[in-house]
Design a binder for these strands. Structure first.
Lengths: 160, 160
DNA sequence: GCGCTATCGTTCGAATTTGAACACCGGGTA
DNA sequence: TACCCGGTGTTCAAATTCGAACGATAGCGC
């Protein structure tokens, strides 16, 4: 990499907007979910992922990867959610090492109660602010960016 | 808000891509900065903000707001950076309550050393992945979204 | 079967973040 | 002057996150 290619004005504008939006959006989601359902944004995502999986269960490693969290971090959060009765652990019969996290009925109920408000906020703060062209560009551009980052397992430490 | 308007396929695609990109990007930045300069992403941003400010100094509250961090979190980080000699505190002569964080020469040097690699990574992982139209759409769309979030001080708890 | 490597989930201590007090002081107001 | 209000930065304990190390075990080649 020869001399650094600095960002043009528009590039810097895009980068700043991206960072700011990501940070503020995360804060707002956290706030709202904590208030409405007593969940952190991360916990909500965990439940949502489980809800979308067949039988409402996923292996710990898969789940950690899905929410881009470290293994130990997930162990901690599943512990919290289990205490709250929203999730339970299930041993895998074929592989004693593996553990499934399973969404309980309480978890499902809480998620269904929280989802509408969550979606509404996502709309209000991001989706409905964008024009259709901007929406498509965002989906395409960021989709490609995230795909690439997920692809090269070298730098990404596997899936953490 | 009557019944919830769920996200269309494309909307969900955009939202997922946004979240994933934000998370992964943050992880990569953190990794690279920690490796190359021994700084967390947050610490880098703090130094960068100071560097961009007149005289390389900002009040604690301004700085906290600029990097979207809580006051106490900033106190902690400035403490770390001060110990490392990258920043120092300066009392304000006109108002004894106020404290300025000032970028030291070491801080400037470290930042200048780290910046090229940082920018290169931003390019590689995001900017250069996007087409010019996508870049503009992202800058416009997310710029508007972040502006709106910063605007309504009600929900945003001021600047935290 | 034996040994080796990789994967799985957990554990542990340290680092960081959070949110609620807290002490301090400037600026108004009586 | 005395009083309160609002903003400033810090402190503190609790919650969370991180990263390395660990014990257990599957999968593979011999």
């Amino acid at each position: 990499m020869g001399r650094p290619r600095w960002l043009s004005a528009e590039e810097k504008r895009a980068w700043t907007a991206f960072r700011t939006t990501a940070t503020l959006l995360h804060q707002r989601m956290d706030q709202q979910l904590k208030r409405d359902a007593g969940l952190s944004h991360l916990q909500y995502e965990i439940l949502a992922r489980l809800s979308g999986a067949p039988d409402g269960e996923l292996r710990m490693a898969e789940l950690a990867c899905a929410v881009s969290n470290s293994k130990s971090g997930l162990t901690y959060q599943i512990g919290q959610l289990e205490q709250a009765g929203l999730v339970r652990r299930r041993a895998c019969e074929s592989d004693p090492r593996a553990v499934y996290a399973v969404l309980t009925d309480e978890g499902t109920a809480l998620l269904e109660g929280a989802a509408p408000g969550h979606v509404a906020l996502v709309r209000e703060l991001l989706i409905d602010v964008l024009t259709p062209e901007q929406l498509r560009a965002l989906a395409d551009g960021l989709g490609e960016a995230s795909r690439r980052m997920l692809a090269d397992g070298d730098t990404s430490a596997g899936c953490l």
